[in-house]
Amino acid sequence: MKVLICIGHVPDTTSKIRFTDNASKFDKSDIQFIIGPYEELALTRLLDIKDAGTDLHITAVNVGPVETEATLRKALAMGADEAVRVNAEPLDALFTAKQIAEVYKKGTYDFIVTGKESIDYNGGQVDGMIAEILGIPSIPSASKFEIMGSVAKAEREIDGGKEVVEAAFPFVIAAQKGFAIDPRIPGMRGIMAARKKEILVFEPSEQANITKIIHHYLPEAKSACKKVAADNVEELVRLLHEEAKVI
């Protein structure tokens, strides 16, 4: 069985976010990039399934410039079998989804796994778009995943409960928290083995750029918490009314 897993190349969550070019571009200098945490869980789950005896060939894919190869290399060190990089700066979710759909068509993959969203732009659209382009089912935001012979079983958290779904191959599934418990830490042996694994580079299929980022804004800094004495209701009401302006 062959699986294609999308590996996001995202800033470490502790990064200091800055912009350049009049706030139209994200400043990548000084940023440590990591595998997106949801994709890391997704890959961990696939590796667990493989370790438990399912014959699974794992291909990691990323749409990005050459610097994303370090992130793909980490996926290989964790245990992915091979990697594909589509040599393009991802422009928006549709562009990325189209490129990944092209990679899918070139191979003989049984299913596609993504994270539920990237942790930089948090679009959360790529998985659904890939499924739509390819005309295959999509399982968004799955918190559990199992392969049971010719079908896959997934669990999704929905308002007020859980939804258990079954799907025949092929399909796209997006991982969220719970997909695996802890991300797998690659060992020295994995890092060594990754040296010999191949990263294939595909040129992108031409796609129109349909979105453009005009400006980035940083969220306002959180102000310090104000404490009001328990018996001073008047002051609490005044603050909520005059400062927070919520009542």
């Binding site: 370090a70 290399r73 980490k74 060190a77 830490i185 690659p186 020295m188 890092i191 040296r195």
Partner: peptide, 9 residues
């Protein structure tokens, strides 16, 4: 890059 990966690991 490999050294950096080892550090993170």
């Amino acid at each position: 890059e490999e050294h950096k990966m080892i550090r993170r690991m």
